[in-house]
Amino acid sequence: MSETVISADKLTKKFGDFIATNEISFEVKKGEIFGFLGANGAGKTTAIRMFCGLLLPSSGAATVAGFDVYRQTEKIKQNIGYMSQKFSLYEDLTVKENIRFYAGIYGMNRQSIKEKTVGLLKQLNLASEPNTLVKSLPLGWKQKLAFSVAIFHEPKVVFLDEPTGGVDPITRREFWNLIYQAAERGITIFVTTHYMDEAEYCNRVSIMVDGKIEALDTPRNLKKIFTAASMDEVFLQFARGAKRGE
C-alpha cells in the first residue's frame, strides 16, 4: 500500500462545552480522492482547519504530509494547498499576477514560476489572457484557475472546500477532470461538496454527523451497506438524524 498522507487518530476539538469534532480517526493515502461529507455544522470546517494547521486540536493525534498538527504547522502549510468557494483569487489582480503571487508565497523561484505559468495557461485555455483581471473571468474559469493555483507548488495534499458551488454542469466536469489529473500525479485530494453526484467521483467518502464520522468507505460499498440507489440517499439517511445546526 502506498504512503499515508493524512492520518487522524481520535482527533478532537472542543470549544468550551461544545465538541466540534469528536474523536475522528481515518487515514488517507497518497493520490487518493477523499470526499469529506457532512451537513452544515457537522464539524467539517473545524476538522479541515486542524489539518491545515490553523487550529490546535484539543486532544488526539494527526499528521498531514508526515508532519504533526501540534508542532509542525509551518511545515504542514508548506506542503498543502487550499481552495474554497468563498476565497480563492484576488479579483483585482491579473491571472499572471495571481499565479506569481501564490507561487512566490511558497518560495518558488522566478524561472520555474515562469515556465510553469506558460504550461498552466495553455492547459486552462487562458494562453491569450495572462493580463486579464480575474474579476472579468467567468466563474467557471476562476474556479479552475483557483484550483490550478492551489496545486501550483505541487503540494502533497490539497484541501478543497466546496470548490464547485454555483458552477455550470460542463465546467463542473472540467473541474473534476483537473482533480483527476492532479490525483494521477500523486496529489492527494481532500474535498467537501454539497453535490452528491460529486461524492460518487471520490475514491472514498466519509460522512460526518454531529462531530463524529459515522460512515467511511467507497461510494459503492456505502450504497451496498445502506441499500441505497445513490450517495444522495446514503447521505440523507445519516443527515436526517443530525441533532445540531451550525
Binding site: A39, G165, M196
Partner: peptide
C-alpha cells in the same frame, strides 16, 4: 438553497 446542505434543501 445555495450553500445549504442536502437535507435542508430537501
Amino acid at each position: 438553497t445555495t450553500g445549504v446542505d442536502a437535507v435542508s434543501r430537501k
